[in-house]
Structures are given as C-alpha cells and as structure tokens.
Amino acid sequence: MKQLEIDAELKKAGAHAKGRFGELRFLARRYLLGTIGLVIMIMFILTALFAEWIAPFDPLTVNAKQALAAPGALHWLGADSFGRDVFSRIVYGTRISMAVGIGSMLLGSSLGVVIGLTSGYLGGWVDLVFQRLVDILQALPLLVLALVMAAALGPSLQNTILAIAIPLVPTVARVIRANTLTLRELPFVEAAKAAGMSETRIALRHVLPNTLAPLIVLATAQFGSAILTEASLSFLGLGIPEPHPSWGRMLSESAAEYVRTAPWLVIFPGLAISLIVFGTNLLGDALRDILDPRQRT
C-alpha cells in the first residue's frame, strides 16, 4: 500500500525519476518539510547513539570552578550550578527523550493495536467492554492521567514510560478499530475466511498490515506527545529523577532559580525539546500526506 501510494504520487507529479536514488530525491523535493523533519530526527537519533563521542564532558561530573559559567569556548551552551556542561547534558538527555518517546510510543501503540484489532474484529461484548475502557481513558486529559499514574508508580525511567504509554492507548485503539471494521467487510478478508484461515491468522496476516498506514502516522504524533508529556512531568517533579539529565528536569531546576541569572539554563533544554518535537511534527505531517491521502492537507 505504501509503495503503491508513492508510485501514484510519482506518476501524478509526472516525475521521470529513475531508480531508488531518483525516487528519494523526488520525494525529498516534493515533501521538503518532511525531509527537514526526517533530518532533524536522524540527527537526534545519532546524537543518542553516539552521545559518548559527541559530548565533550561527562554529563554528571561536577566542577566547582565552572559553576554557572556563561556559554563560551569551553562550555558551548554554558554550565549549570554544579559546573556540569549543559551541552553534554543535553546530548545525553537525548537518550532519555528517545527512550521515553520510543518506549511510550511502542508500548502505547501495541496495546492500542491489540485492543483496537480485537475489538473491531471480534465485535460483540468484547468490543463493548474495550470501548468503555477506551472511553474511560479518553475522558481524562493526557497530562492528568499521566500525572496520577506517575505519582502512583513512583519516579523512574520505566515508570515514566508506562505512565505516558497508557494514556496514548485510546487514540490508537479507536483508529485501528475503525479501520478493522471497514476491512472486515472487504472481499479479500471474506475470501480468506472462505479459504478456511483461522480468525487470528486473518487478523494478523490481512487486517493488521492494512492498518499500518494510519498507525505509522499516529505513532509519529504520539512520539512527539510522549516527549512533551515527559518534559511536563519532569518539570512538575514527577518524571525522571536526578541525576539523569532529562530535559524537563533540567528546566524545572533552572526555572526555579535561574530565569534571570543564567537564562541559558532555561533556553537550551527548552530548545532541544521544541526541536525534536518540531522534527517529529514535520515528519508526521509528511507521512500523513504520503500514507493517508484521505487526511491530506
């Protein structure tokens, strides 16, 4: 389906692109913003993977002499009140944001897929029960539910991921269920049924792959929300604990003390959060245009 869409796009644009590289170049030009988003995301992924090589300092090492040093040649983005290098902390913080973003997205989406698929495919009382569950989760704003869950589970990386993943479930479940309902009636599913394929097999083999497109679009958006929610939780003191350099935590410390005296402590972690979410949003928009033409803007 994905491939089909891209081909259609290519034809529509009358591109005479030849070969893989040509296709890519065409896509990059057609979806310039999406490409920028992709580049931003790749940049962050590389940063997370190679933090040890990129960061000039250890993110946890305290250095009294450099406390609150302003941005300069030694500390590009300044140093915090312990003299820890802000740039290095942001670089290492990428890992936390990525872990939370990817972890919550995967967990939330898989739960959502399971619920949506079962609900849509089986129908009946299973559907009824799952839909009420989804209603319940959806009646609470993301941050409210995440706050209560984070408090209930206690501050740690795993718990933060869980606290953010659960509130992400309903949206995915809704979309997958709606898609499944439509797909269930389609001829090829009927055909598979007639051929004697088991229900589970049909659901996994035929229905699930066909819901991938909207799922990818949703998951991208959820990656962004997860990062923003983690930042808010940490800002409120309920997310990732010290000494891990979570961007939200870095902001909550500096917001309380250094808004005036060391503004770089407020500006740079916030910029990092905004940039990664911006990248996700750009990419998400482009993916939606490519994969989900009904929603095209």
């Binding site: 930042a231 902001l251 808004v259 916030g270 905004s274 979410v277 911006f278 949003n281």
Partner: peptide
C-alpha cells in the same frame, strides 16, 4: 507546527 512543538511551560518561562 512550531507552535505546537513548544512545551507549554517553556513558553510560559
């Protein structure tokens, strides 16, 4: 899109 990407508390700050 950029507006949507800013954390609300950071914007406040």
């Amino acid at each position: 899109l950029a507006g949507l990407s800013l954390p609300a508390f950071w914007l406040g700050l």
